[in-house]
Amino acid sequence: MPRLAERKDHPLSMRLPDADIAIIDRAAMLRGRSRTDFVRDAAVRAAEDVLMETLPVRMSAASFDAFMEALSGPPVPVPEMIELIRRPAPWETSATSED
């Protein structure tokens, strides 16, 4: 008798109010995705964010000392950041010039 292939997908079922479904469907449509793909990607992204916030960072003692030295040293200006901070915000400039 042939063996059935082991299924690797796991179903996930949720009960959501109509308003939640409507907003999910609208966002999925705007991205050109199915509801399932949209929700799966959003859930996985949220899970990865939580894991990244809680996973310890491991490094050697020498690397930790270098990291602490870099943090303890004087700040070093980054020219690109200075230019960005000095640049007027888009709402502070005229989008169209009236000549």
Rank of each mutant, 00 (worst) to 15 (best):
residue 1 M to G: 14
residue 1 M to W: 06
residue 1 M to N: 08
residue 1 M to Q: 09
residue 2 P to F: 05
residue 4 L to A: 14
residue 5 A to F: 01
residue 6 E to C: 07
residue 7 R to A: 10
residue 7 R to V: 12
residue 7 R to Q: 13
residue 8 K to H: 13
residue 8 K to S: 11
residue 9 D to M: 09
residue 10 H to W: 02
residue 11 P to G: 06
residue 11 P to H: 04
residue 13 S to I: 08
residue 13 S to F: 02
residue 15 R to Q: 07
residue 18 D to R: 07
residue 18 D to H: 05
residue 18 D to T: 08
residue 18 D to Y: 03
residue 19 A to Y: 00
residue 19 A to W: 02
residue 20 D to R: 05
residue 21 I to V: 14
residue 22 A to C: 06
residue 22 A to P: 03
residue 23 I to N: 01
residue 24 I to T: 01
residue 25 D to M: 02
residue 25 D to L: 02
residue 26 R to S: 13
residue 27 A to K: 11
residue 29 M to Y: 10
residue 31 R to N: 13
residue 33 R to V: 03
residue 33 R to N: 05
residue 34 S to E: 12
residue 34 S to G: 10
residue 34 S to C: 03
residue 35 R to S: 05
residue 36 T to H: 03
residue 36 T to I: 01
residue 36 T to P: 00
residue 37 D to G: 05
residue 37 D to F: 00
residue 38 F to K: 02
residue 39 V to F: 01
residue 40 R to D: 02
residue 40 R to C: 04
residue 41 D to S: 09
residue 41 D to I: 06
residue 41 D to Q: 13
residue 42 A to L: 13
residue 44 V to E: 14
residue 44 V to C: 10
residue 45 R to Q: 09
residue 45 R to A: 14
residue 55 L to Y: 04
residue 55 L to W: 05
residue 55 L to S: 12
residue 56 P to L: 11
residue 56 P to H: 07
residue 57 V to K: 02
residue 57 V to T: 10
residue 57 V to W: 00
residue 60 S to I: 04
residue 61 A to N: 01
residue 61 A to R: 05
residue 62 A to D: 14
residue 64 F to L: 15
residue 65 D to Q: 05
residue 68 M to F: 03
residue 69 E to F: 01
residue 70 A to S: 13
residue 71 L to V: 03
residue 73 G to Y: 00
residue 73 G to H: 09
residue 75 P to A: 08
residue 76 V to C: 10
residue 77 P to Q: 10
residue 78 V to C: 10
residue 78 V to P: 03
residue 79 P to V: 04
residue 80 E to N: 06
residue 80 E to W: 03
residue 81 M to G: 01
residue 82 I to V: 15
residue 83 E to K: 13
residue 83 E to N: 11
residue 86 R to Y: 04
residue 88 P to M: 06
residue 89 A to S: 10
residue 90 P to Q: 08
residue 90 P to R: 15
residue 90 P to S: 11
residue 91 W to F: 07
residue 92 E to A: 11
residue 93 T to C: 10
residue 93 T to G: 06
residue 95 A to Q: 14
residue 96 T to E: 12
